[in-house]
């Protein structure tokens, strides 16, 4: 275990009766990196994240987070992680601010109200802060959900399919947040079924398929698995997503998202 490894997994297995969800998973996520666990539905991504966040115990194998074993030192692991699950785990009946205050209190932090206000501002929820979450849009909920995960500045953040079910704008917002976290030195392990997302965000990508990691490395390393690139000339038309974002961007608010979207497409274009 080196000091640079934030998450280390060896030989992780988990079965439910005859269903072998994880069949020996190994992975290492360096500190401060964005690590994408890429896989289709049912590949075992959520199970892996649940084991790493101490919600589930593995049958065999070991997993350590910041040097703490997830089964033997679960309490220590919980001090250094936070989890944003597949569905926004927010309290619908409370207001956005009350949700944040709740988590800050549970993390035993002083000045819970101040922390809540700061996060509301940072996630563009200040105006909606005192409204009940049941009135929020899907994107707002997800933003609140991620804001709740950042309380107490945990060094390791798990994001389980953070953009599933979000509209393009909401997805850009999440992407921006992930990049910001990475810049601040937080280790982010995110699961996704979108290739584009992994490509856009991750320093390292592991492909989980039928309970095994079948490929693991940086994007450049993964590209080497493919035959050498050939040069083709393709006329570049704006995609519908760019058009959509450009149009709504003129109405204000979405401009930065549109820029980000264009950047994402440039990235694709460079391939």
């Amino acid at each position: 275990m080196t000091a640079e490894t934030a998450i280390r997994v060896r030989g992780l297995r988990k079965s439910y009766r005859d269903v072998h969800v994880l069949r020996g998973v190994d992975l290492d996520a360096p500190r401060g990196s964005v690590f994408a666990l890429l896989g289709s539905n049912g590949a075992g991504k959520t199970t892996a994240v649940r084991i790493l966040s101490t919600l589930l115990t593995a049958d065999t194998g070991t997993a350590t987070v910041h040097g703490f074993d997830v089964s033997a030192q679960a309490a220590e692991v919980r001090e250094v992680i936070s989890l944003t699950g597949q569905f926004a785990a927010v309290d619908e009946i409370l207001s956005g601010r009350e949700n944040l205050v709740l988590v800050a209190r549970l993390r035993h932090l002083k000045n819970a109200g101040g922390i809540a206000d700061e996060l509301l501002a940072r996630f563009a929820l200040a105006d909606a802060g005192r409204r009940r979450v049941s009135t929020y849009s899907g994107g707002m909920r997800r933003r609140l959900d991620i804001a709740m995960s950042l309380i107490g500045k945990p060094p390791v953040v798990f994001l389980d399919e953070p953009t599933t079910g979000l509209d393009p704008e909401g997805r850009m917002e999440v992407w921006r947040t992930v990049k910001e976290l990475a810049r601040g030195g937080t280790t982010v392990l995110l699961t996704t079924q979108y290739l584009e997302e992994a490509e856009h965000l991750a320093d390292r990508i592991a492909i989980l398929h039928e309970g095994r990691i079948i490929a693991n490395g940086t994007l450049a390393e993964l590209k080497q698995l493919m035959p050498a690139a050939t040069v083709e000339y393709v006329e570049k038309q704006p995609g519908l997503e760019e058009i959509f974002l450009a149009i709504i961007g003129t109405a204000g608010g979405g401009r930065e998202a549109a820029r980000d979207g264009a950047a994402a497409s440039d990235w694709k274009g460079r391939r």
Binding site: S53, A89, L106
Partner: peptide, 9 residues
């Protein structure tokens, strides 16, 4: 999922 959130804290 809020119980999952609490339990991972």
């Amino acid at each position: 999922g809020i119980v999952d959130r609490f339990q991972s804290m």
